[in-house]
């Protein structure tokens, strides 16, 4: 029965990683840079959700407000700083600036919410375990799996079936050509960035009943998101999805069999994928 629990644990953790990795991958696809502040947006989402729950007493409101705050911060960051660094050959500058933003977020959240570990219980009606015979499993991870699947479906529809999605795909495929053909690449990038960090913030809120909030969590999640994105292939939503599930399951079964070396196993997986397919499982080409 613990294998079944590990399966659901792995899937729900994988869905969280997908929420993070999808945003990171989208931003990379369009902007060609890695947002090192992505984990920071995850914990901002978490702290906003925590505060909303404490002040208004409603967890689901947090799920709405967290991503909105995250998206707004993403827009602000793009308008104030990142906009000035758009363009080819400035990737390093973008990475350094987002590293700076990550440091700022880490200390600002510590100043705002303190360094204590914060945790919340699962919201009703998902606070009771499901019991089938003598097997019982908490309900909330299933909610995370549902949210992950929903976001995956909506993202797929957005990218494949809407005009904005077509613009995002065009800008990701060939920014210069897209611009020549009349795609406003700078606003598209800004929108993608806001969407990506909003997804990270959503992940932070959704994760709240499963993972306690603490300083350092931002970097931990950023790193796992990077692993997911590299394994899946940069710029590919489907790649991020399957890679996130793979990493999530490696983590949960690793904890079951080799609790000391879970993280080493995840990196072993990364190394294996890189040897076998340097561009990631679903990556199209080495950039």
């Amino acid at each position: 029965m613990q294998y079944v629990s590990a399966l659901f644990n792995g899937l729900s953790y994988g869905m969280l990683l997908f929420l993070l990795g999808a945003g990171l991958s989208l931003v990379f696809g369009v902007g060609r840079f890695i947002n090192l502040a992505h984990g920071g947006l995850f914990i901002i989402g978490g702290y906003v959700g925590f505060t909303v729950l404490n002040e208004l007493g409603n967890f689901w409101l947090g799920i709405l407000i967290g991503p909105m705050v995250g998206g707004a911060l993403g827009l602000a960051a793009d308008l104030l700083v990142l906009r000035r660094l758009h363009g080819h050959g400035r990737e390093l500058d973008q990475v350094l600036v987002t590293f700076g933003l990550a440091l700022i977020i880490a200390d600002a959240t510590r100043a705002g919410w303190g360094g204590d570990i914060r945790s919340v219980g699962a919201p009703a009606p998902f606070d009771r375990p499901i019991e089938i015979g003598d097997f019982s499993y908490p309900t909330y991870p299933l909610v995370i799996i549902g949210v992950g699947l929903l976001v995956f479906g909506l993202l797929w529809l957005l990218l494949q079936r809407t005009r904005v999605g077509a613009m995002i795909r065009a800008a990701a495929g060939d920014p210069q050509m897209a611009q020549v053909l009349g795609v406003p690449t700078a606003p598209v990038l800004r929108l993608t960035f806001a969407l990506g960090v909003a997804l990270a913030a959503l992940g932070g809120v959704v994760a709240l009943p499963r993972q306690a909030l603490a300083p350092g969590r931002d970097f931990e999640m950023l790193l796992l998101a990077l692993v997911v994105v590299v394994i899946g292939g940069l710029g590919r939503i489907e790649g991020a999805f399957w890679a996130a599930l793979l990493v999530g399951l490696t983590d949960s079964y690793g904890k079951l069999f080799f609790p000391e070396f879970t993280v080493a196993m995840i990196f072993g997986l990364l190394a294996l994928v890189l040897i076998w397919r340097p561009e990631g499982l679903l990556g199209r080409r080495a950039v």
Binding site: F28, R32, F33, I34, E91, V95, L223, L226, V227, V230, L234, E260, F261, V263, A264, F267, L270, A271, L274, I275, P278, A286, V287
Partner: peptide, 28 residues
């Protein structure tokens, strides 16, 4: 041998990932 096969941002991410592996090992 692995990281130097990649370029730019990929190199940066992979070096970060391996350093983090060392960090986790030093803790565990």
């Amino acid at each position: 041998i692995f990281t130097l096969r990649s370029h730019g941002i990929f190199f940066l991410m992979l070096t970060l990932a391996f350093a983090q592996l060392a960090y986790v090992l030093s803790l565990q």
